[in-house]
């Protein structure tokens, strides 16, 4: 008995595997044999998956570009008026050593006044002033590749220095850009959700038609003792294959789109003096896309199978 048990288990496992293998290969064979409608279904799924995937890839690229721009953030530190030239030069020197600071330039009050006179056209009026009302300013260039939160924290720290009267970070546009991209990303996920639903429904409908076409076969299988699981299996695998082939098609579409855009985008980047290169799907993205397709296909066929198989009973 003890020696018989593992053998029987192994045999049951073998039967299980061969049942699944047969169902999977059978479903695949059926799709390949009837390849035109299969390809069309896969095409619909592929396009539905490719759209959000392409948008996300594009957004990813956009983020890497604006990451470069984010490095251009700068803070203007308006010092107290009584800070002497030696003091602010020393402060500038000290700030150059700070983490996250790329460069510090000094605008002494005289220089600022001269520029203001030149730019504003109030030169006559300004000459009437007894003393220069402008404070010394330190312009701090923030090192590139910092997240908005990090930049803000640095600006706050600089603003807290005793010599600094007011710190102004020219960060509004960075914040707006990131907010906009977050909005777009959310929008893409909403669209992706809707398209995922579309994929599940397309597969569900295809499987429903398949079930109708094979009604007689299902009835006969039930008559001779096929369990619901046995009858369900080929349809579920068909859904899986639809989803998987759709996912594969989506990868091909996204990569083809990237290939079309790679040259123009490089030209544009060169014009801006950037070494930016359009990147596409990584291996993990491809895996994710295939897994999404397969899962949606399976889910769609599960819906159809659950609803329609129970309705078919032999009489």
């Amino acid at each position: 008995m003890a020696r018989q048990q593992p053998g029987r288990l192994r045999q049951a496992f073998e039967v299980y595997l061969s049942n699944h293998g047969r169902a999977a290969l059978g479903a695949l064979g059926r799709l390949v044999r009837d390849w035109t409608p299969s390809l069309m279904t896969a095409g619909v799924i592929g396009i539905a998956l490719a759209l959000p995937a392409a948008f996300l890839v594009l957004l990813d690229n956009l983020q890497s570009v604006t990451g470069e721009w984010g490095g251009d953030a700068r803070a203007s530190l308006f010092l107290h008026k009584d800070v002497k030239p030696e003091a602010y030069r020393e402060l500038a020197q000290q700030l150059r050593g700070e983490d996250g600071v790329a460069a510090v330039s000094i605008i002494p009050p005289e220089e600022a006044m001269a520029e203001f006179q030149r730019m504003s056209g109030f030169s006559d009026a300004l000459e009437l002033l007894d003393e220069n009302p402008l404070p010394p300013v330190l312009v701090v260039e923030i090192a590139s590749g910092r997240a908005p939160a990090q930049i803000e924290a640095l600006a706050d720290r600089l603003g807290g220095l005793p010599q600094v009267a007011r710190a102004r970070l020219d960060r509004a546009w960075v914040k707006r850009l990131h907010a906009m991209m977050a909005l777009i990303k959310r929008g893409i996920w909403v669209i992706a959700g809707l398209l995922a639903l579309t994929v599940a429904m397309v597969v569900g409908n295809t499987i429903r038609l398949d079930i109708e076409n094979r009604r007689e076969e299902i009835v006969i299988t039930k008559l001779i003792g096929g369990t619901d699981g046995f009858i369900r299996r080929p349809f579920l695998y068909a859904g899986l294959w639809y989803g998987l082939s759709g996912g594969l098609l989506a990868c091909i579409l996204v990569e083809a789109g990237r290939w079309l855009l790679v040259d123009p985008s490089r030209q544009l980047a060169t014009l801006y003096g950037s070494g930016f290169r359009l990147h596409g799907l990584g291996l993990d993205d491809i895996m994710l896309l295939l897994a999404c397709g397969a899962a949606l296909g399976w889910a769609g066929s599960w819906l159809a199978v659950g609803r329609h198989l129970a309705a078919i009973e032999p009489r």
Partner: peptide
């Protein structure tokens, strides 16, 4: 299904 596996059924219209 397990009951039906123990019964062989033959139909007028063959059901092949």
């Amino acid at each position: 299904p397990h009951l039906r596996r123990r019964i062989g059924m033959i139909f007028q219209d063959h059901r092949l």
